[in-house]
Design a protein around this nucleic acid. Structure first.
Length: 242
DNA sequence: GAACGGATTTTCT
DNA sequence: GAAAATCCGTTCC
């Protein structure tokens, strides 16, 4: 399985983004391979884009964006979630594509398990073994009932399903030996699947207050794993009562 | 089925 | 101190 060549990512992110739809992101974990077909992405232009993490220049967190294309930029946000981007163009542009949703096509049980153990405490507390629900645990049954379409529906869910965290920040997705790779979808016969059969739609980015009018979100029309579009609304600030 | 609040890091004011 | 490229359980239509 050959990863996508680096030249693919050496273009403006707004061009790379729609071409990524239908491609496959796979993570080779210690427990096995998990792969998703990308169904929803968002382009960020870098230092010229007020919605981009790179807008205000390089920091320790976003340093990977200021590097060569074809690498993963993984960030932690909202105090609990990871999101993954693929760096585009060159270091001067610091542009990237946010991977917003996908359909799990391999390692579904691993993905389900990763999504179920969601108490991902940052302190490093492992509750792997021992928590087997030998007794009646309706909560774990609810988790097992997690719909397949929801496994990677949303940028933070996608990272959970693929078990992606900051340790993969900077990972090269164009190298076959890398734990995190992007490839084109192929049939067993080895021919490319014509993902172009499905129409691509675009619209405003999600959760972005700056430049919310730029239609740089792309998704596969009608795909059930695409997150429902919610127009941006200002979060009401917590009122301080005297 | 919409709407709200909580979890709690990174960054900037 | 506040907001952010979010998700989830709860609450109230």
């Amino acid at each position: 399985m050959t990863p996508i060549p680096r030249e693919f990512f050496a273009r403006p992110s707004v061009q790379v983004a729609p071409d990524l739809l239908g491609c496959v992101l796979e993570h080779e974990t210690a427990e096995g391979l998990v792969a998703v077909e990308l169904t929803e992405v968002e382009a960020y232009a870098g230092q010229s884009d007020p919605a981009s993490h790179a807008y205000r220049g390089r920091t320790a967190r976003n340093a990977v964006m200021f590097g060569p294309p074809g690498h993963a930029y993984v960030y932690f946000t909202y105090g609990m979630h990871f999101c993954v981007n693929l760096v585009c163009q060159d270091a001067d542009n610091a542009s990237a594509v946010l991977l917003r949703a996908g359909r799990v096509i391999e390692g579904e049980e691993l993905a389900r398990a990763s999504r179920a153990r969601r108490t991902h405490k940052a302190g490093g507390d492992h509750d792997r073994a021992g928590q087997d629900s030998a007794g009646q645990d309706s909560a774990s049954q609810d988790r097992a009932a997690l719909a397949t379409r929801d496994l990677a529906r949303g940028p933070a869910r996608l990272c959970q399903a693929l078990d992606i965290d900051r340790s993969l920040d900077g990972a090269d997705v164009c190298t076959a030996g890398s734990p995190l790779r992007v490839r084109r979808r192929q049939t067993r016969a080895g021919t490319n699947v014509r993902s172009g059969q499905r129409s691509i739609r675009s619209g405003p980015r999600v959760g972005v207050s700056a430049a919310a009018d730029v239609p740089w979100r792309f998704w596969l029309d009608g795909d059930p794993t695409v997150s429902a579009y919610r127009p941006w609304v200002a979060r009401r600030r917590k009122l301080v009562t005297p």
